[in-house]
């Protein structure tokens, strides 16, 4: 089973989206692979969020094709399939009213029995080290806790692809490490990650593939194995100063 997941490739191509006069995405293409992490860079307003939201099915593109290995299909035909396998995390994840447990419970199948639910929630809390805040109101969590609960909530859905929009922005050092640790763990489980960030340095340990979005197009900034700290420094120098 596990190898099967590892072999999943999903290719999105010809993604176009325009808002009014502005062509946000113009013939963008991306290939997502199980157990790999794509880092999506680009300046603020370059369309990273729109791109992720289109893959998540939350935004409709003007055009787009999906290839899961069985042929190339119009995005509309794959919508339901994508919904079942992709989870999108907002930059500031939304927590429903109630405690952390009830938020985690949201992800679980309605058909599950109460006992199984509790068991799964307990193991999820343990997985993410959230036991101590299990009964806290989800609306009042700190930024780091919020992100970890959101990732855990997504994890309970068993997604094939997890999309994260600026997951560690405004986070303290320790929280950032713990978040990235969770994401590494997800990657090892075979989940495909797409992480958007304007500050790639935090994702050094995580990234396999580094894409740059500018002027509506995605380009390979570096090929996977050769990413070194020098690249990050260069990138930051080019894009920040």
């Amino acid at each position: 089973m596990k190898t099967d997941i590892y072999n999943t490739h999903i290719n999105f191509s010809d993604i176009r989206k325009r808002f009014g006069q502005k062509q946000i995405l113009d013939n963008s293409e991306i290939e997502i692979t199980s157990g790999k992490c794509i880092l999506l860079c680009g300046k603020n307003g370059s369309g990273k969020t729109t791109f992720l939201r289109i893959i998540a099915g939350l935004e409709t593109p003007d055009s787009g094709f999906v290839n899961t290995g069985l042929g190339k299909y119009h995005w509309k035909k794959c919508r339901q399939q994508l919904r079942n396998s992709v989870v999108y995390l907002h930059q500031q994840p939304y927590m429903f009213e109630g405690d952390v447990i009830s938020n985690l419970n949201f992800s679980l199948d309605n058909k599950l029995k109460q006992k199984q639910r509790l068991q799964r929630i307990r193991s999820a809390l343990e997985w993410a080290g959230l036991e101590s805040i299990a009964e806290n109101s989800a609306k009042t969590l700190s930024g780091g806790e919020l992100q970890r609960v959101a990732i855990t909530r997504a994890w309970l859905r068993n997604p094939k692809i997890l999309l994260l929009d600026e997951p560690v922005t405004n986070m303290d050092y320790e929280s950032r490490l713990r978040t990235i640790d969770l994401l590494l763990n997800l990657k090892q489980q075979g989940v495909a990650l797409v992480v958007s960030s304007h500050d790639p340095v935090h994702f050094e340990a995580l990234t396999d593939n580094w894409l740059q979005l500018s002027e509506g197009r995605l380009s390979d900034y570096t090929s996977s194995e050769n990413i070194t700290p020098i690249h990050y420094k260069k990138y930051i120098y080019e894009h920040t100063y």
């Binding site: 998540a56 099915g57 939350l58 919904r83 079942n84 992709v86 989870v87 999108y88 907002h90 500031q92 994840p93 939304y94 429903f96 009213e97 949201f106 992800s107 909530r153 997504a154 859905r157």
Partner: peptide, 26 residues
């Protein structure tokens, strides 16, 4: 209520009816 409530429910696998119910609850 934030639009994210609806989107979060949807991306976590809720169908339209359940997502609507979730937003109403919020």
């Amino acid at each position: 209520i934030d639009k994210r409530a609806w989107e979060t429910a949807r991306t976590l696998g809720a169908n339209r009816i359940r997502a609507f119910y979730t937003v109403m609850k919020e």
